[in-house]
Design a protein around this nucleic acid. Sequence first.
DNA 1: AATATATATCGGCTTTTCCCGATATACCAA
DNA 2: TTGGTATATCGGGAAAAGCCGATATATATT
Lengths: 100, 100
Amino acid sequence: MDQVEIFKALSNKTRLQILNWLKDPALNFPEQPNADFENVGVCVGQIQIKAGLSQSTISEYLAILQRADLVSATRVGQWTYYKRNQEGIAQLSKIINSEL
Amino acid sequence: MDQVEIFKALSNKTRLQILNWLKDPALNFPEQPNADFENVGVCVGQIQIKAGLSQSTISEYLAILQRADLVSATRVGQWTYYKRNQEGIAQLSKIINSEL
DNA sequence: AATATATATCGGCTTTTCCCGATATACCAA
DNA sequence: TTGGTATATCGGGAAAAGCCGATATATATT
């Protein structure tokens, strides 16, 4: 993954908020139905409501974060659950400390 | 400084390269006249030649990096020397590790 | 099969970024 | 003061990002 693409993914207030919200799903998404936060994450609809942007925009933003390896997705039935990709985030940390 | 602005500053290949080049000025800018790398950094002209973009573009890019606290500038005569702002970069590291 | 719900993708309008050449400003030297 | 060099700023055209509504796709239910 290109470093530039990772930083672009982080160059947006809403996307930074999403990453932050996903640090504590139980706190930030109390309305989640069938909550299985730890295993799969939070579904798109809940994130969309919280962010207050359109469904298509949030879907796109999550795809951008996923392409940057900052979140991962799991499809369960008609829902897609997103959670933080701690490996990808740790790798970013490494990039900052060594390559930047 | 807004986190988003820091990441925007890093969302460009040339700006990332400049930050990298400034890690070892003696290596990357052997042509620098009156080299006083450790104290003041590298002048705009040298960076411009190395980057291969226009003078105005590089001046603008350095201003963007400076606004993000990633480099600092020192004016000496008709030259402006830029070097890495290690404090700002360290603070970014902290942001990634704690707030992201 | 028909309908309903969740998400992804598409087309498009608006704003921002990229990068340039031209010009302005700052400093130096004669 | 005049001219030369280094950098900053301005104006703008092209490309990308932000964000939307409409539509397509996938899955579930009846």
